[in-house]
Simulated scan of single mutants.
Amino acid sequence: MSNQYQRLAKLCLLMVISSILITACSQQVVQTTHFSSQIPSDCRVVQHVFGKTCVPLDPQRIIALDPIFTLDPLIALGVEPIGFASYNGSGEEVLLGVSFDEVEGAKNVGDAGQPSFEKILVLKPDLILTTDYGDDEQKYKLLSKIAPTVSVPNESHLSPEDYENKPWFKENLRFVAKVLGQEAKSEEVLRQYQNRIEALKNRLGNQLHQIEVSVIFYGEGYIWTISKGNYPVSFILDDVGLRYKSVPYGEWNLSIETISEYDSDILFIVDVDKRGASFYLQHPLFRDLEVVKNNRAYVVSQENWRSGGISGANKTLNDLFKYLPEDE
């Protein structure tokens, strides 16, 4: 009997959600996939991978469905979303580049890959920011029935050449700022970032041209490092003018035998599995490295170093300010 009640409850819930979606669809001023030539005067037209969207001029109830490409730039622009998605694949909620303290008061609507449409509906957003990795058109169509939805470009949309040479975390900020009509604010944020880069150069002085940096990620059953462009840290190190060890595009994974090749002047170990500093500094893979013996190996968080947005880039810079300069 209880199973019959459960099936009946699920059926009722499905009917309610379908009714709300149909109502939202009928109330939508402009369809994003079938853009009308009649453009309302109280919206901003944004072109993206799925077409055009009529975005409210001053959206107040924004949901960000990707921590890196939508939530990170919102926080950098000083915009407080009402909802956000996290990465939940490891069994815990994870944000990259943004802390949970920075979204206090906002509702978590589930995993970025499969957010809860029920939770999104309840929040009554007036703008949804999502991103696309090549298979999200159906999700986009459903979201656009709830509220105006913009698909924010990500690094997968770039050619390998652009991927390695264009600091895409800066362009990501500019795109989201354009959606919101906050282009001037984005340029201010980028100027502040550049000022911090110059300040770090000055702090390093002669050390700038004397040290080489390595970055190793450890976790999820893999050990890997950076290539040019695959994390903002490579662009940050380029901006500072530091030498760093890297691998060709797509060859990120390292073997146990090659760890010694990353015995540089300074080593950052990104603690993906959250094991703590003592685990790595006493680990047979690392403890015999000269950089560890010289106390220039530092364990840092994936939230700051595995990010892809300007907020995360600034948190990476925080660590560089903390660990790179050495009293001469």
Rank of each mutant, 00 (worst) to 15 (best):
S264Q: 10
Y244G: 04
V272I: 15
S307Y: 07
V233D: 05
D288W: 13
N318E: 11
V272P: 01
S260W: 07
N230F: 04
V215A: 14
G219E: 08
G312K: 10
D263M: 13
K201L: 07
S227R: 00
S234Y: 06
L267W: 13
V233K: 02
G241P: 09
A277N: 13
K293W: 05
E303G: 10
P248M: 05
F268V: 06
V215L: 15
V213F: 00
E212M: 06
S260R: 12
A277C: 09
I223L: 09
N294D: 14
V270M: 05
E257L: 04
R203L: 05
V213K: 02
Y249E: 09
N314T: 08
S246I: 01
F268D: 11
N318M: 02
W224G: 00
P284K: 06
N202P: 03
V240Y: 07
V300P: 09
K274N: 14
S311W: 09
S301Q: 14
D239L: 08
E212K: 15
K228G: 02
D239W: 05
F235D: 01
I310W: 07
V291I: 15
L204G: 01
W224S: 06
N230D: 13
T225C: 02
Y280R: 12
G308D: 00
L267M: 15
V291S: 14
R296N: 13
D239N: 13
L285N: 03
F321Y: 10
D271V: 12
R243H: 15
I256C: 04
V233L: 15
I211Y: 00
Y280T: 09
L285E: 01
W252K: 09
Q207L: 11
G312Y: 09
E220G: 02
N314Q: 12
F268W: 11
P248W: 06
S260A: 13
N314Y: 04
G276I: 12
